[in-house]
Amino acid sequence: MYRRMIGWSSLSILGTFLVLCLISPVILPHSPTDIVALPLQPPGDRHWLGTNELGQDLLCRVLAGGQNSIMVGLVGAGLATLIGTALGMIAGYFGGRIDQFLSRLTDVIIAVPVFPLLIILSAYYALSLHALGLIMGALGWCPCARIVRAQALSLSQWPFVQGVRAMGAGHIYILGHYILPFVLPLSLVKFIFALQGYLLMGVGLGFIGLGGAQTIDWGWILNHAFTSGGLSMGCWWWFLAPVGAIVATSLSIAMIGYSLEQRHEPLSGGRNRWSVP
């Protein structure tokens, strides 16, 4: 009950923030690039989060940056979960040489330092944040593949799967109807935690000035505040706005994953273990 309350509360907070980010061009009277007030105004009635050194509204910029930052996490986590689930199911179900090949491939890919590689690629090829999200997903599927493989390997030996196979069912049918439904909740948990990790990774890339100069994201807002002397001028709201959004979003995602982990983790000690309905 405690985990469920945390999960629903966090989901409500995250969902509300996502909706605000998506509809911000409609509900806000100006765009994040418009100069709407005097520079470096603290939070007030007209500008709830204050303004930056150009007089741009920080609330508009934070909501606009949220669209890009969260999208990077969704793209990376979605692709990583899709690839990891597919390869993990194939490796665990078929076993043998296929399993050995995919396991060795996983060992190689998981050893690649993703964040330094993203820095190098972005510095040399000026990749956008969305392109970096795709690279994150293409290189980050290994943890999901490993745990899905372990579960699929166990499921493939269950009597009901063996019985369906003996009746002549095809591999695709068995994978889609008898393996996938049991590993999907596990993939969902991995997706949630990957979303948090890739969102923060995208923020880190934006903070060091990578990911496209024309793309507004939370990391770039922090980079702009730091390089423009926000700390020396004591403009605390310039940092508080994006940092608060990052912390609230990351914490909400983490709490959602926390609430789902025990319920859907097959190796946990919780009461909701895997069972055949």
Score class of each variant (00 low, 15 high):
N223M: 11
G170R: 14
I27N: 09
A150W: 00
T33E: 15
G197R: 04
S268K: 11
D99M: 00
R4C: 02
L40H: 06
E265A: 15
V161G: 12
L155F: 03
F182R: 13
Y178G: 05
L121M: 13
V183F: 08
Q41Y: 01
L127D: 01
A91C: 05
L54K: 06
H177C: 15
S268T: 13
F239R: 13
I109S: 10
L105V: 09
L22N: 03
V26R: 08
V36H: 05
M255I: 00
T85N: 07
G96S: 03
Y258R: 13
G230I: 12
G163R: 07
Q262S: 14
L59T: 07
W8S: 13
L38K: 11
R3F: 10
C60F: 00
G244Y: 03
S24M: 08
I6W: 12
V161K: 09
L188W: 08
H130V: 13
G230T: 14
A241R: 09
D34F: 04
G219D: 08
P159G: 06
G229H: 11
V164I: 07
L121W: 02
A123N: 09
S252A: 12
I83V: 14
Q151A: 06
I119A: 04
V247I: 08
W238K: 04
W141K: 03
L121A: 10
G65K: 04
L188Y: 05
G92C: 03
G257Q: 07
M255V: 00
G202I: 01
I172L: 15
G170H: 11
Q157S: 12
L175F: 10
S187C: 04
F115P: 03
D45N: 10
G140I: 03
G78A: 14
I35R: 10
